[in-house]
Design a protein around this nucleic acid. Structure first.
Lengths: 134, 134
DNA sequence: AATAATGATACTATTATAGTATCATATAGT
DNA sequence: ACTATATGATACTATAATAGTATCATTATT
């Protein structure tokens, strides 16, 4: 159960969005979502708050409030969610900062890794929420 | 410093191999390698032992012993190292085992994730140690 | 037999992930 | 205005993975 590109929080987030984008109602409370997806409430709330902050969902406070989708599923990219919940994506950190790589820009291994990184990132950038749900 | 596809141990391992494959000597002790790459010795030894167990290097005990390369760099794949040091690679675990996915094989999201996984894995499978070092 | 190497294994420290709990704040309806 | 009901902010705890250490056993060369 290791080395997953997508962690639990992101996974939950995708499913929350899946639920909301397939749904009939316009606005959903954390309670609604919890009942449908059985994600622990406090954890779910944290996720929803992040989705709001990240501009993926809009939130409305107070009675009758909840969360609303604001963007088309075609315009939400997996990479956005990954970065929102897991921070910037990278292939490898440069370990030998001082010792082997006095000039970081010339470290061959690093350059190769960055190329690999770019490939994977491009793969990820092409994936929309819509494509995950269709 | 999060969400790295390649962790420190694997990174070190790549550099160890890089050093050995570019090297002039035939056999290297942990001490030799430590001095050249400044990886903490006990950690390095653990890595070398794994490389031996994983069939990437061969080890020789006793005086005059050390580690020897046994395969061409063209025949060592990055994915092997990743799996050796970080376990099996996957994109996402299936979180909603019981609740949403009564039939795991029909979970649409899961299927999509597996397709993504396959793409990235294929990318990784194509990368050899040789290509990282050339 | 002594020395010098790795093998096996158990331990500790640090960091990331996963999850919980609580109080503050805003809004709708009365 | 008051109350109920929703989210916002934030601080906390538990668990697991990563990173690193330490020690003793085993093997090969001399």
């Amino acid at each position: 159960m290791r080395n997953r590109l997508i962690n639990r929080e992101t996974d939950y987030a995708i499913r929350v969005l899946g639920f909301m984008y397939r749904a009939v109602k316009n606005i959903y409370t954390a309670e609604d979502i919890e009942k449908n997806l059985s994600i622990p409430r406090p954890f779910l709330r944290k996720i929803l708050q992040k989705l709001n902050k990240g501009g993926i969902l809009h939130s409305q406070k107070g009675k009758g409030g909840g969360f609303i989708t604001v963007r088309e599923a075609e315009k939400i990219f997996l990479i956005e969610l990954l970065e929102l919940f897991q921070g910037p994506i990278g292939v490898s950190e440069c370990v030998f900062r001082k010792n082997i790589c006095p000039d970081r820009n010339k470290c061959i291994l690093r350059i190769k890794m960055l190329l690999l990184e770019e490939k994977i990132l491009n793969e990820l950038k092409a994936i929309t929420l819509a494509s995950l749900l269709e």
